[in-house]
Design a protein around this nucleic acid. Sequence first.
DNA 1: GTGAAAGCGCTAACAT
DNA 2: ATGTTAGCGCTTTCAC
Lengths: 350, 350
Amino acid sequence: MSRKPTRDDVARLAGTSTAVVSYVVNGGPRRVREETRQRVLRAIGELGYRPNALAKSLSHGRTDLYALLVPDLANPYLAALAQALEHEFFARGKVLLVGDSHDDPDRETLILEAFLRQQIAGLVWYGVNQPLPLDLLEESHVPAVLLNQPTGPPQNGSRAVGLSGRPGIWSVSADERLEGRLATEHLVDHGRRTIAIVAGPNGRRNARERVRGWEKALRRADLPSSAPIHVPFTREGGRASVDHVLELGADAVVASNEMQAIGLLNGLHLRGVRVPEDVAVIGINGTPLAEYASPSLSMVEMPAPAVADRIARALNGEGDAGGAAIAPYVVARASCGCGDVSERIEDGAP
Amino acid sequence: MSRKPTRDDVARLAGTSTAVVSYVVNGGPRRVREETRQRVLRAIGELGYRPNALAKSLSHGRTDLYALLVPDLANPYLAALAQALEHEFFARGKVLLVGDSHDDPDRETLILEAFLRQQIAGLVWYGVNQPLPLDLLEESHVPAVLLNQPTGPPQNGSRAVGLSGRPGIWSVSADERLEGRLATEHLVDHGRRTIAIVAGPNGRRNARERVRGWEKALRRADLPSSAPIHVPFTREGGRASVDHVLELGADAVVASNEMQAIGLLNGLHLRGVRVPEDVAVIGINGTPLAEYASPSLSMVEMPAPAVADRIARALNGEGDAGGAAIAPYVVARASCGCGDVSERIEDGAP
DNA sequence: GTGAAAGCGCTAACAT
DNA sequence: ATGTTAGCGCTTTCAC
């Protein structure tokens, strides 16, 4: 009574063959007479039989394992994404493996290799570098969705597009430029004239895109643009940018992600600068956390659940992965001067 | 050249038997002549051979899969824990599976079953209910660490203890009572006289423990205690508790977790109450996020990396899982009135 | 030091 | 409708 019951035990107890047990457990590929079915089911219940997914996968040639590889699981945006992906995958009977590269390309490779050894059925990869070293991935035949990888011409919102290299590698990425533009335009609408931007590390492509959107909005509004303030995508970075922001005499700032925005808010608070009275703040890629900053943070958002849905569809080859874009939108709260209004402002076309 | 190379291919190319390839790949259990070893290694390199962990596990009877089951992956504390666990497990050649129960016991069971089907080698379970339904777990022989499950008499700090039921089930839990006491004592030291507590949902055992610690500290200081304010362990809950706090005329508040503390801070901000001048705030189970609240949040902490280390040791049967306790400590920041000092205050004995 | 072969638990093509 | 059986890729005992 110690060894875990196997399919053989079930078959023996039910007085059938092992194949029939398989058919019952999997609901196919053959039909089974109802009476037999019941007998098998009863045997399964009696033994407390639990199918071994390992054996199944080995035999069937396909696992139930999906993997997520990110640079920082503690980043609220990525944690929200992990949560949303787990939700989507679980709904499809898959289970989620996570890896945290700590922003280290070498570690990233090691993790990826571990995932491939596990014969993952799909990968979601928020990579450290741009572009990513795809060799490992390409020689495997694992379907993958790349995040944070700008591909081709800028797109409206987010979509899943096939990526050159090999079929089965997709890219789901936000239109960072649009996000930057939306954020900036909102500040312009508030009548701000000197709008600074806290950007990501110099040279990172996705950092650059957000800056481009900011520039575009300023140009359209006929406002001057200053030099982007390049700091890491961290709370520390945001806080450290405060001196620059004040030197520029800015009356508004766009922060390139939520962690930076929170750090910035804290930095301004420490300097005794009032938000939004003295300086208005808006960030990009908000999470539910933003609402609870003090003052609450206005953000451009593209909710993790929608992104996760898109990713899951792409990996499962469900319908039009490249279909309608997910549009980012402004969630106006207090930090931009919208008072306590927490309305959702939809975007028009570019 | 399309099929993935298997151990057979390697053996053929190296001109050896499959067993030898195994010995080389696993560094055992038999020795292999150096020359042969090199030949095998070369064949592996040439073919780009990657061992199939599935087959290995099926044969070997043990997977490299550890699983983490939590009620809310987006909770910064749990996200930090997930990150720290991934780190520990990866260092041991394991890979991390995550499940999010969304605070739903039924979902929790389904996820657990999925994990068991995957033949996980270990489980870390931050359960929804207290006590947890351990039947599923007990009939499996999976080593497990239960978090958030008060066991036996209160302990100093956190430790891994064997849990009745069956061997291989451990509990690593904070001494919630001590945490509550430390937080409260710190406020007392600041000269606060009316110290309220934002507790967790009424009836939850871990919520109760923190309240007990608070009561004890007040009693010792000869201060009156009010009724605990029971709200969910969420930011919404913290924010919603503000009216109660103000009604009580409190000049200080202990929040039972970080999300509540952040919500409370925001609620006070919205009411125009100054922190810490009018009301001092301290929370329990802080993460790096707390430092960036405005004002920065004083917290009782028990860092995720230390907890994760303890958990990993327990699961790996490494040394004294039940050894020295992890002591929670106060990280004093601005919200309690410690100014911008960010010193770490160690705790004495109970 | 190395090879042959019997499993690990399950799937599915092929029989009946 | 159900039984038989050959794998899936690897580990490991047992021979040599």
